[in-house]
């Protein structure tokens, strides 16, 4: 039992069977994370390199913990402290890492397609931890895992994804995953943040949050990238928050017991009201906990002998 490819670059390239296999494998690893001794020897002697060209605390820590709980050796590599600042290309740096017998490279990079390029250029397995606006597959997998844990069945589930879908790799990976599994996906946000190709993926687009929330089982809020303010995507944060922020009142429009998700980091009071983020509906911290189990699953499945 393994994934068909040596890498995990995108959700788009996974079959539904592979997605379900990853979720089931992660289930076993959730039990390991609940133990007093949170370590199993499955990846003993393997080396995992975290190669992060963008700031990240959650994802990098999550991958690091996942690898360590599997007994792999972990090296963290960031461009500011490496020869990348001296002008070495991505592939050359990666080949050097590979020459030191790295088994798995976890890459986060600001350019879409960086993970694919790397995967083709090295023999090590490559896991995409976010490449530009393209994909962030392990985030979508941990979101799926969290939904399955709470709701069980993807078929017939209704999920609203709210915010800047145009610039969100999290949204894109989730849309690929959820539509493959037969889930109804609604995209909500200001027209400037909704890409044109969404209808082709079978996603229902809405510009009105109140209307889109009616009857949904899961509300997935995206982070408003405040650094984009002033790029004509939205007039003011206050207006965005009034139109697309999730408040306790709006939450009542969804199905009773609907889940509130957010990939983090959250902007309290902007896209999500503090009382919603801290409510019983919120599974934001479950997502973080499940992230470790899902990444353990992916590392395990990609680490078969060669």
């Amino acid at each position: 039992m393994s994934l068909k490819q040596k890498d995990l670059v995108s959700i788009a390239s996974l079959s539904t069977d592979e997605i379900m296999m990853i979720l089931e494998t992660a289930e076993s690893f959730k039990e390991v994370s609940g133990r007093e001794i949170k370590k199993v020897p499955a990846l003993r002697g393997k080396t995992v390199v975290n190669f992060f060209f963008e700031p990240s605390t959650r994802t990098r820590t999550s991958f690091e913990l996942a690898a360590k709980r599997l007994s792999a050796d972990v090296i963290n590599f960031s461009p500011s402290s490496s020869s990348v600042v001296k002008g070495e290309t991505l592939l050359d740096t990666a080949r050097n890492i590979e020459a030191m017998q790295a088994d798995i490279i976890v890459l986060r990079h600001p350019a879409a397609g960086a993970a694919e390029t790397l995967a083709r250029g090295v023999k090590s397995s490559v896991i995409n931890a976010g490449d530009g606006w393209h994909e962030h597959p392990t985030q979508a997998l941990l979101d799926l895992f969290t939904m399955r844990e709470k709701k069980l069945d993807f078929k017939g589930l209704r999920v609203a994804i709210v915010g800047d879908l145009a610039h969100s790799r999290v949204a894109r990976s989730n849309i690929y995953a959820l539509t493959k599994l037969g889930t109804e996906v609604r995209a909500v946000g200001p027209p400037t943040m909704i890409p044109a190709y969404l209808d082709r993926l079978g996603v229902r687009v809405s510009y009105n949050l109140d209307e889109a929330l009616r009857g949904v089982d899961v509300i997935m809020m995206l982070r408003l990238q405040l650094e984009r303010q002033g790029r004509a995507l939205f007039p003011t944060i206050r207006e965005y928050s009034r139109l697309y922020g999730l408040t306790a009142e709006r939450l009542r429009l969804a199905e009773p017991g609907a889940l509130v998700m957010h990939p983090g980091p959250i902007n309290r009071g902007v896209e999500i009201a503090p009382e919603v983020a801290d409510s019983f509906s919120s599974v934001i911290l479950d997502q973080v906990a499940n992230g470790v189990a899902v990444r353990m699953g992916v590392l395990y499945l990609l680490s078969g002998g060669n």
């Binding site: 039992m1 393994s2 089931e24 494998t25 289930e27 076993s28 690893f29 039990e31 390991v32 199993v40 020897p41 499955a42 990846l43 003993r44 002697g45 393997k46 395990y300 499945l301 680490s303 078969g304 002998g305 060669n306």
Partner: peptide, 19 residues
């Protein structure tokens, strides 16, 4: 499964079940 001594040499990872 996670404690097997042949994990590193197998091509395919064995199916995990729950403890």
């Amino acid at each position: 499964t996670l404690y097997r001594d042949d994990l590193a040499i197998r091509k395919d990872q064995p199916v995990l079940r729950k403890t």
